[in-house]
Amino acid sequence: MNPSQRIELVCPAGSLPALKTAIDHGADCVYLGFKDATNARNFTGLNFDPASMREGVRYAHQRGRKVLLALNTYPQAGNWGDWTAAVDRAAEMELDAVILADPGLMAYAAKTHPQLRLHLSVQGSATSYEAINFYHERFGIQRAVLPRVLSLAQVEQVIANTPVEIEVFGFGGLCVMVEGRCALSAYATGESPNCNGACSPGKHVRWEQTPQGMETRLNGILIDRFADGERAGYPTLCKGRFDVNGETYYAIEEPTSLNTLELLPEIARAGVRAIKIEGRQRSPAYVTQVTKVWRAALDRVMADADNFTVQPAWMAELNKVSEGQSHTLGAYYRPWK
């Protein structure tokens, strides 16, 4: 690793208490969103109104940390003004960067607020340096968040061929589909990550105890059924059990979390500039736990990548807060594909 290159720890904040605990426990940056469809975690009870965002930015900046605003859904003609207003507010509130997916919105931001730093969201589905360089040349993006589809060798190849800083997901809920390229939720519920900032939204979820077991449905579609004693998970539609050719199994993905802790030395050597923790919808307790572990691990790897080992206590702490209490290396590990 180039020692001059610090790897930033980018932590989720779905609320002001989450933001403060992330900062207190060592996040270099927090990312957050407004309370509306302009971001990809548009969930009830989550996110920031302008007053709480102002307070969050003040809290972070006083401590020398950054705040990044996710505006990473795709505006349509009928609501375009809500997204440009959000960009204007971000500039006015002196956020350190906005994380965008829509090229039209990037063009607006670059033209209207040339001083505002632009990050390409994972929702932009840019998986190659050719795609990332498109956004760099046209809008001057300075960082891109990679979709969770590339192997480490492929991440390295991207980094070698772009001036744009690369951020990768390190931990948290795992989208098995390419982000920005998934309309499964739209198909089942009419609400999508792309346009509504929601996947498998709660208002379409039904839990029902039946003689066959606990059933979870999404807009009436049976996502899974749990026997007594099985822990019934939230019906995210790609993480249910389905029947394919007479076999019932997790046909798309198990309910599991991404955890790349053991790859940290390689991630650092590849030249990754920031690691993102997923989970703006999670509690401040989750943010505290995960930030603590990742701060310790990142400090260790930046001090001495060659002698880095994963401490069992770190894994134990992270597994406690993982979806399904299990974890995977995802696409970084080829057999996962």
Binding site: P103, L105, G124, E130, N133
Partner: peptide
């Protein structure tokens, strides 16, 4: 994908079609 867009634009081609996976949702884009 946008990588294809970059290469087509760089080649000066004007005969291409923006495919359904490009996430075009508004007039600006």
């Amino acid at each position: 994908d946008m990588g294809a867009v970059r290469l087509l634009a760089a080649a000066g081609r004007r005969d291409w079609v923006a495919g359904p996976t490009l996430n075009v949702f508004n007039p600006a884009t």
